[in-house]
Design a protein around this nucleic acid. Structure first.
Lengths: 114, 114
DNA sequence: CGATATACCTCGCCTGTCAAGGTATATCAG
DNA sequence: CTGATATACCTTGACAGGCGAGGTATATCG
């Protein structure tokens, strides 16, 4: 099962930052690791991924540099900044909070008496 | 803390259907109950709510009818259809699945060895 | 030599959110 | 009686993120 793009939206930035918080990486690798971790459930389309990189770099959350591969295609590496780490912290908190809310709202047993 | 609109997106339909699965209701009441349940964390803006009703009704997931209030402003009630109940089942499943994936991806302790 | 994997990128469409604006009824304080 | 607030509905247009479709280049393997 693949996840609707409307659900992906809003998590893209956090997911990328979370990956980069582990280690510097590049587009292709990040994409593969996301697929691997989720067993192909969650997939960022390339266009989505690269627009996200532009957005995050412009916002100062990541910086990029070219790798010096001696063979194969060139890679553009990304590195998370302090400001990016802080953003990530806040996105994780938002995720926990929204998860709780959505769980309540989607739960069939939950009820109000208003 | 309020939740970013990019996270709301993708859950709006499911949340509305979940509310209507309990009982027929109308826009204003649904909105208030969402706020109450989540302690004002999750808030659908009116414009968003009413666009969602149009969308869901056009898709055949809900039907509407005017209430016969003897006093106060008129209310348009919504009722979930069989097709809507089926959609809700599938949205709940998608939520569980995406929650698991995003949890893994946002988790700081999780790692790959690729 | 053609297919496949790695690796990058952009353009333009589509869709859902929402600020801003509007309508109408009822209640309550001053 | 007047103004504020709550209830209750609605539309328009701007905006932003996802992504289909298209493109480039290198390396490997049958």
């Amino acid at each position: 099962m693949s996840i609707a793009s409307d659900i992906l939206r809003g998590h893209t930035d956090g997911i990328i930052l979370a990956r980069l918080c582990k280690k510097d990486s590049y587009g292709y690798e990040i994409n593969k690791s996301i697929q691997k971790i989720t067993g192909n459930t969650y997939e960022l389309k390339e266009a989505t991924l690269y627009t996200a990189f532009r957005r995050l770099e412009e916002a100062g959350y990541i910086v990029s540099y070219w790798g010096n591969e001696l063979t194969g295609a060139r890679r553009r590496y990304y590195s998370i900044t302090d400001s990016g780490r802080e953003m990530l912290r806040s996105l994780r908190a938002e995720w926990e909070e929204s998860k709780r809310s959505i769980d309540k709202l989607m739960d069939e047993s939950f009820d109000t008496d208003n």
